[in-house]
C-alpha cells in the first residue's frame, strides 16, 4: 500500500497587517444639515453662546487588512467613495492605526 503524502507548501504570502481605520463622514458645506442646526440651536439656548457651528455626521470604525499603511489608505478611500459616503452631499476623512 502506497500512501501518498502531499505536502502543500504554502505559497509565499505577502505579509498582511491589520489596521484600525476611523472614518468620519460629514455633510459638505452648503448642504443643509438639519441635525447640526437643531443641535446648534439647542446648545445656544442652553447657554453655550460660544458655539458658532455644529455639523452632525457619521463615525465608522473598520478593522482591515493591508500590506502597509498606504495600501490601507487606498482601500479606505475606495470604500468611502463607493459606499461609506455620498460624494454629492458628504465629505470624509480618516485616520489609520496599525494593530498588534
Amino acid at each position: 500500500m502506497i500512501i501518498l503524502v502531499i505536502i502543500r507548501l504554502g505559497r509565499h504570502k505577502k505579509d498582511m497587517r491589520c489596521f484600525k481605520a476611523d472614518v468620519t463622514v460629514l455633510p459638505k458645506d452648503g448642504v443643509l444639515d438639519i441635525q447640526g442646526k437643531a443641535v446648534e440651536k439647542t446648545l445656544r439656548s442652553h447657554g453655550y453662546s460660544e458655539v458658532d457651528e455644529v455639523r452632525v455626521g457619521r463615525f465608522i470604525r473598520l478593522a482591515i487588512r493591508a500590506e502597509d499603511e498606504s495600501e490601507a489608505g487606498e482601500k479606505i478611500c475606495r470604500m468611502a467613495d463607493d459606499l461609506l459616503s455620498n460624494g454629492l452631499i458628504e465629505s470624509y476623512s480618516y485616520t489609520l492605526e496599525a494593530m498588534r
Partner: peptide, 10 residues
C-alpha cells in the same frame, strides 16, 4: 441625479 436629505421639519 441628486440626493434625498432629511425633511426640514426633522
Amino acid at each position: 441625479p441628486g440626493a434625498l436629505l432629511p425633511n426640514t421639519s426633522m
